[in-house]
Structures are given as C-alpha cells and as structure tokens.
Design a protein around this nucleic acid. Structure first.
Lengths: 191, 191, 191, 191
DNA sequence: AATGAATGAGCATTCATTCAT
DNA sequence: TATGAATGAATGCTCATTCAT
C-alpha cells in the first residue's frame, strides 16, 4: 500500500515528467514541487529508481483498470472501441501519462525500468490479440490477417496518434478527433 | 557540407545512442569513442545540441533517400510495400537509427530538437498520406477511411513493430518477419 | 549506571564497528540492528559521541577487569603471561573489541574520544611498566633495559599481533598461536 | 609516472590526513587546499580511492627506499638500528606519514585499500624476519626465540612508539628518545 | 519510551563548456 | 587542428539530529 506522501510523490513525478520531460525529474525539482526538502523524499522511497518504478506501477494499474472495464463490454469490436475511448479520455484528462508511455528510451539504462516498460507494452498487445482472436471466432473481425498483426496495428495507431497529439502541444481535441480514428480502425479490422 | 570529422562525430553519436541510450551520449564518451580530446569536439560542433541536430539531419536525409527510391515504384501499394521494406532493411542493418527515431522524449527540452523531431514524424505521415490518396484515386486503396487515418495506422504499425524489435534485443528477424507484417498491412488498406 | 537499552546500544555499536568498521557505525545502521527507530536512540544517548564514549568506557572496564585478575597472580612474569592470555582469549571470543582498540585514527576529530583513547593506551603501558618494575626488583626481569621500554615492547607486540590476526580475517588461532608468542616475550624480558 | 599535479594532490591528501584525520580528507577540502575546483581533482585521479591508493603507494615507495638503504649496512643489528633510525627520522620530519600507517581501520571498506595496507605491514615484518634470520645465522641475534616472533616484537615496538608520539601531539623528541629505544631493542634481541 | 516526518549540511561525482597553449 | 587543465552548476544520496505526536 502507498502512503499519502508516496502518492503525492508519484503524482508530482508524473506532472514533472509531463512538464519538463524525464530530464526534469530530479530529486531537487521533485522536492521543490512538493514543498519538502530533498532528503525527505528518501524517507518515502529508497531511491529515484524506486520512484520511477512506482510511477510505472501506477500507470500499469491504470491500464489494468481500463482493461477490466473494457472486458465488461460485449462484442470484440465494442471492446476495442471502448478501450480506445478510455485511453483517449484518460490521456486527455491526464496528459502526464503520455510522457510516461513514451519514456522507454530513457529507462534503458535501468533494467528494472526497461523491463517494466516493455512488459506494459507487451501486455497491452497480448490483451488486444486475445480480444481480436475472440472477435475473429465470433465472426466480427477479419481472419485474413493474423490477430497479432492486427493487434500491433491497433496499438501502434493508438500510440502514434497520442504521441502526435502531445507533439502538437495538445493542439487538437484528442477525445473528439480520437473517436473518428476509432471508427476508421473498426472499419479496417471488421469482417 | 560536413567535414570528415563531423561525419565521424555524428556516426559515433549515433552508435553511442544505440549502445547506451541518449543518457550515454556525453561529450566525454563521444571523444573517447573517436579517440580525440573533449575540447576537440567543440572545434567541429559549437555545442552538444548542434551535434544532435546533425544526427537528426542525417536521419532526415536518410528518410528522404528512402522516399526518393520509393517514389520510383509504380502503384501506391507497391510504394508502401517498398517503403516498409526499405525501413526494415535500414533498421536491421543499422540499429542505431531505432534509438534516434524514438528519442523524442529526450529532446523535449531543446526546442530546436523537438521541432526537428516532430517535423520528421509529420513529414513521414504527410508523405504516406499523399501516397495513399493517390492510391485511392487510382482505385487500389480503400476510400471508406480517410487517407490520413490510414497513414497514421501504417506509420504507427511500423513504429511499434520496430520498437518491439528493439525492446526484445533484436530477438527476431526484422527483415523476414517484417515482410509478413507488410503483407497484412497491404491487405488491410487495399480496396 | 547503564539501562538495558543503553547496554544493548553499546553492544550493537561494538558489533557494527567489527563488521563494517567505524564508517559503518551510523545511527541508521544502529537503529536497524537493534530494531528501533532512529530517534529512539536519542532517548538513550544524547548524541553519537556519547555512544562512542560509552563504547570506550565499556572497553576500559573490560581492561580494568583483566588487570584486576592479573594482579592476583604472583610473580611479574606470570602476571604478564596471564595478561597476554586474557587479552588473546577476550579478543578471540569477542573480535569486535579489536576494531575498537585500533580506532584511534577515527576518533581524532573529537577531543573527548581521542583523549579517552590515548588514556586507555597509556594506562595499559603504565600498568605494564609497574609490573615490570616490580619484577625487576624481585630479580625476575632484566634490568639492563628501562622498564618503560620493556612495557612498550610488550604492549606493542601484543597490539601488532592482534592487528595481524584481524587483518588475516582471523586466519589463525589467536589463542593457540598467541601462547607461543607469550613464551617468546617472556624469554626476552626474563633475567 | 606521476604528474606534478598528481604529486601535489597526494601531498595535500597526506597533510590533510595528518591535520584532520581521514575523515577530513574530502574532495572539497583537498581542492580547497590546492586552490583548484573540486571537479579539477578528477582530471588527475579517477576517484577518491585512486588518490588513497596513490598515497599508500607513495608510502610504500618510501618504505622501500628505507629498506634499500638499510641493506647496505653490514651486520643485522646495524641494519635494524639503521631501519629504526630512518623510520624515526622520516616520521619526525614528515608527521603526516604516521597518520597513514595507522589508517588501516578506515580503509576496511575498500578492498583495494585494505589489501594494500596489510601488504605493507606484512612486507615490513617479512623483511625484518629475513634480517633477523641472517643475524641469527651469523651469531649476532639470539636463536632461543623464533625469528618471526622477534620481528613482530621489533615492528610492534616501533609502531606503538610512533603512535604514542603522535597521540602526545609530538610531545617528545622522537629522534632523540627513539635512539634510546633502539638501543634497548638491540640489547633484547642480541645474542 | 518510541515513532514518522523532516531537515541543513555535506559528500563523491558528472556534465557541458571554456581558455591558454 | 588539437589538447591539458580547469570550472560552475547540478545530481543522487547520506548523515546526525530535531520535533510534534
């Protein structure tokens, strides 16, 4: 379980990553943002890597929640639609998350972080593959293309779209425009 | 024009990024790799940002070359196929490039770098959109989905696939497996 | 008088010094070893110096006990023999003590500690000098060499031998080998 | 070979150890003493341990020189006498060395340093044992006590005496009083 | 008697960059 | 064209100690 301070630290880290990139996530900036001294941070997390692990874990949980909700939907296409919607909504409301999902390059030096990162990506693709496979069995999704290829396409589309949104400085309405993209994706993978 | 030393520096930077991530690209490491002193670097590039600009420029040129070749192909689907093939081949033979294409997160602090980065991404999507639009006009590519959506899907698929290849430590044959993915993509976007 | 907790702290400090050197004696390590919080330490000792003073005092007491027992022996040579024996036995059974006896270098900054340290050394030499002087008067110990010189030799021999034993990682049997050394020392100083 | 700056750093380290103990040997103090910035130190030594290694090496060389001179003497007793004399003279003129010879306790955490330290001690005892053994063969030194015991006694005497001199704050004339101690030692080990 | 939370001061080290040669 | 020497600013982290509870 996380203490209130730990949650506060993770949130501060998240928004710091969002504002200034991972490079800006220093213990000094973190402590300044929270309004405590630098050593105080170490009372709550053993070191910086542990904080990033917590950030990734919170992101992982957040993903898990989305999936849990998505699975309640009936029909694979509806599930994928719901998944995209949930993602876009979450990123729209909490842009900090975008920075995390694309921080893999920065975590490369620390095995614990890079492992967690690729684990998250793979779990998402795995999940999507399952959904698609079921949809194919039920006759909703096309079968002339392997399910894992479809999964990569769907996930890759999502990622690039969100990334672009971030690069434009949230220059378009991710929720609204995203809905349109979803429909295009659905058309493409439907039988 | 670039001097021999400048090219050497850019190449060293590229392979350093590949081996140790952007974090490992320090002037010290760079000079050690080339076998000159640290200040000597500054004889050839004004500062570190300038080196990264040169890295991105060389990547941009490399992209331009691919596109020029691709345009010689007749038929939009063949062009997309050729583009994918060329990408996979290039990344396969020169994995350092992968690190650069996903380094956006690290360039965020430096406007010149982040601009160049998003410019590269957008140019690629733009190019793909054009190709797709033409293909749609010629009746090769489906028209029930906007061209720019298709472009994002195609480009997003490519990116995520290459990223995954990198994350697995080049754990599968990008060229061979990539060809299969191309075929799936072609199936999806064909009329 | 010392409370149970105070004794516990001194003992923990002693074994911490033995395991990791004086550098490893931090309030954090100390509290971890005892199983209480860091501030709790300050309930029992005003500060770290006070703990070290207590450690030195306990060492001083331990020395005093040895001497008291030694003085019951009749004959100076037997007393010296007994003293050596007692030392070797004590260090053998409680290697932590060795670290303390050679920690002078680290106590230099704190006058209270360095004073206590040199006081312990001097008291030992003084004690030995007395024993030797008496032995000389009784005709057991040679008189062609000043008693205080003999005392330094005897004490110096003891220290270096114990130090070596520590440096070898208790690589030989201090009690058994020590007995042989005692005999050599006795031969040398006997009349 | 050492550069002028490296020698300067080692000497500054040595005198810093002498003045404030090993605890006072920080990069900050070191750079302040030399009059350069902290990072400048790292241009000349890779890290702090490397500086301490250099300090120990210079001490080791200094010991080697003494021994080389000592071996020119004819007769084991003269050699031991000369060795003591040289030691006392060196410590008297350069008290910083005393701090180093007794810093073992502080080097315990760093294997490279603790190894070097015990190597120096053992080499000295070894050297003395050899000298004594030869003296015994030539009939100058007593044979009723093992040579290595005599070596430990001689070396231990030296160490404790020098230590005491340091603890008294150079409160007596090490050279003059030392000569007297040498004579006592010689008397004891002579046949 | 004990603790969770916090802190000022300090530490070794790294970084991009500059300057005299 | 290159280098040895240097630096200001920063980084992650540790330490002994304090304070409110």
């Amino acid at each position: 379980m996380q203490t209130a301070r730990q949650i506060e630290i993770v949130e501060a880290a998240l928004s710091l990553i969002n504002e200034t990139g991972i490079q800006g996530l220093t213990i000094k900036n973190l402590s300044k943002k929270i309004g405590i001294s630098e050593p105080a941070i170490y009372r709550h997390y053993e070191n910086k890597v542990e904080i990033l692990v917590a950030v990734l874990d919170s992101f992982s949980n957040f993903m898990g929640n989305i999936k849990a909700n998505v699975e309640k939907q009936s029909g694979s296409l509806s599930q994928i639609e719901a998944m995209f919607s949930a993602f876009f909504k979450a990123f729209y409301e909490n842009p900090s998350l975008v920075a995390v999902i694309f921080s893999e390059e920065l975590f490369r030096n620390e095995p614990r972080l890079s492992d967690k990162t690729s684990e998250i990506i793979n779990r998402n693709i795995e999940f999507l593959s399952d959904v698609i496979r079921k949809g194919a069995q039920q006759g909703d999704i096309r079968t002339d293309v392997p399910a894992n290829h479809l999964a990569i396409m769907v996930m890759g589309t999502l990622r690039l779209y969100v990334k672009n949104w971030q690069l434009t400085g949230a220059g378009f309405n991710l929720k609204v425009e995203g809905e349109k993209l979803i429909r295009s994706v659905i058309i493409l993978i439907s039988k």
